[in-house]
Write a protein that binds this DNA or RNA. Structure first.
Lengths: 342, 342
DNA sequence: GGGAAAAATGGTAGCGCTACCATGACGTTG
DNA sequence: CAACGTCATGGTAGCGCTACCATTTTTCCC
């Protein structure tokens, strides 16, 4: 006996149900949905009516299988809770919410191996585009990206050798700018405090080094780092370590704002005057920096905008007109605040 | 003329390529990959060798189409940047990273309409499970969840009427506990400050009201709320409003830790002594609360654990043994700190 | 008004995989 | 030893959609 409807599908309406109801061929329905311009006004109306009546929703899996291309953006970030990446991801989501594209988000946990695994997995879906954080992919990852057969955008940083496209800014310049600001403000024994020393943090540290050397102020004992994940409590710990090591410290450039906040709190606790005794500079400029007391100088980065821009570039590439600029530097901004106003 | 290989597929190896190479039927390869126990040791080895040699990766789209079931968890949260949801999402990702399941993450922006749209979209993929934040779905959303044909876990809150399963805690109890703590600590003119008054915030406020009424302390002028998205700067603003409205304020229960931090900073700025003049309680207990100066009393919630538990329950339901407890209350913990130590 | 191009529509044949059933090779049992 | 399971494997027929090509209809131009 022949069942009236597919045994597997669970009875949801399919494209040919719509076609039958609208009295047209299945292919026409497909076209009406994907490229309405190629179907006459009248049929389009009929089809729309049938779609509405049946509550038809296209099956993205079938679509992906038939067209060998999934309407999916693969997005790879090293952390989901770090506000910096959360903002980038939010920018990506907001830019894609009105498009037919779904998002496949992966968390690499700052691990190259994990990144390779996820890239492999994402690749098997033939995504429409890939957005990955950072520019320091392993050789394997890089090869996977090159062979992905879709636009690739590396975000957060700029560098000389994009797989395809890049949006970000120079962390080295950011680190140097922050440090130079402290120097100009009159600080001399300026420490660097950094957690989770990923490649971006390393480059901020490199920027710090450049500035300190140029000013003839460098001293390796001024640098305090740890591979541990960054947090406000950790910022406090590291600052105490730094002070113990170097009691004459009169300024700190912090790897990020969490650390800076931890430093600020410890200063309060230990009755160290900010900015008189110690100057503090953060990185990223979370919105709390401007309300902190004293407000904290920081390097404002354009995370949300990076996400939006990455999507815009990928979308352009998908629709055929690759942007002329393959590498976009969105820069950063030094926000001078009370914590360095000596 | 017949092309040697599929015109569309881009030349990636398929299941039948593996089958040919291993000298077995396609179906056997499929089984060897999905349910190795049903294939003999020897064939399994041969097949594995062929898979490795060809670099075969199964196509999830084809798999989903053929089996009418995608190996995808749909996850819906109202915000990507709010640390609370980021933690839940992290828990979900971590629990699923070793499973074959992918994650489809949607951002509802606290909008019921957006939630419906995303649920519709996610449903079209026939996900293996759905995890949604909150228990206040619109009737349409609720129906979509009920008809999703897969396990559904509502997270962040517990309530009387689960669609399927729930993991969370009582925000009302949390709000009441926080407020009672302030009362016990000797505060009397206790304000409530809340931003982004979503249903969970409303219930915390309800808990505050219960406690204040029971103590005979309630006064509507003590309550300051706004629908605006929560942030540290906003916390500062709201606190100033609250103080202007009610200068005799001697304590505040804040909707969340961002607000609490804003309040603390404003107290510093205005030289208001915490906890002597004003007591502060936050909600969620972000890790910075314990290092803040003074450290801030807060209601610790188990966000990461909620994510993990939700996945565990969904996974159990998928594999057939639904947990006995359909509603899991993970509770919360009052962390007493300096900000209320009068 | 005839011919050609363009536009609109449809049919067929898969995409890569799995559900379902069939087959054959083994025990196992009364 | 016939009858019957059980296990390992394979063949066939789709899943719901789109690429590709064929067909029909319309439009345009000299």
């Amino acid at each position: 006996m022949i069942k009236p409807r597919s045994r597997r599908g669970g009875g949801r309406p399919t494209l040919s149900d719509v076609a039958r109801k609208a009295g047209v061929g299945a292919i026409t329905v497909s076209r009406a949905l994907r490229d309405p311009a190629r179907v006459s006004e009248e049929l389009r109306r009929q089809i729309q009516a049938a779609v509405d009546e049946l509550g038809y929703v296209p099956d993205p899996n079938a679509r992906a299988l038939a067209s060998a291309r999934a309407e999916v953006f693969g997005v790879l970030v090293p952390s989901l809770t770090n506000n910096v990446f959360a903002e980038v991801v939010r920018g990506i989501y907001d830019s894609l919410s009105d498009s037919p594209f779904r998002i496949q988000l992966g968390n690499t946990h700052y691990s190259g191996l994990e990144e390779e695994r996820l890239l492999q997995l994402f690749g098997s879906q033939r995504p429409a585009a890939l957005i990955v954080a950072g520019i320091d992919q392993t050789p394997t990852s890089r090869k996977l990206l090159e062979n992905a057969g879709c636009p690739v955008v590396q975000v957060m940083e700029t560098g000389p050798d994009p797989v395809d496209m890049m949006v970000g800014f120079s962390h080295l310049d950011g680190g140097r700018t922050a440090t130079e600001h402290l120097i100009e403000a009159g600080y001399r024994r300026i420490g660097f405090i950094g957690a989770r020393m990923d490649p971006r943090s390393q480059r901020r540290l490199a920027g710090y080094r450049v500035a300190m050397e140029k000013a003839g102020l460098s001293d390796p004992r001024l640098i305090t780092t740890t591979p541990v994940l960054s947090s406000v409590p950790l910022g406090r710990e590291l600052f105490r370590d730094a002070l113990a090591k170097m009691p004459t410290l009169d300024g700190v450039f912090c790897n990020n704002d969490d650390i800076a906040l931890g430093v600020l709190f410890e200063c309060h606790r230990a009755s160290i005057d900010v900015p008189k005794t110690i100057g503090i500079v953060g990185f990223n400029d979370l919105d709390m920096m401007q309300v902190a007391f004293p407000s904290i100088t920081s390097i404002r980065t354009h995370r949300y905008e990076i996400g939006r821009r990455a999507v815009a570039m990928a979308l352009a590439a998908i629709s055929g007109d690759r942007p002329r600029e393959r590498v976009v530097d969105l820069g950063f901004e030094l926000k001078r605040r009370e914590s360095t106003a000596r």
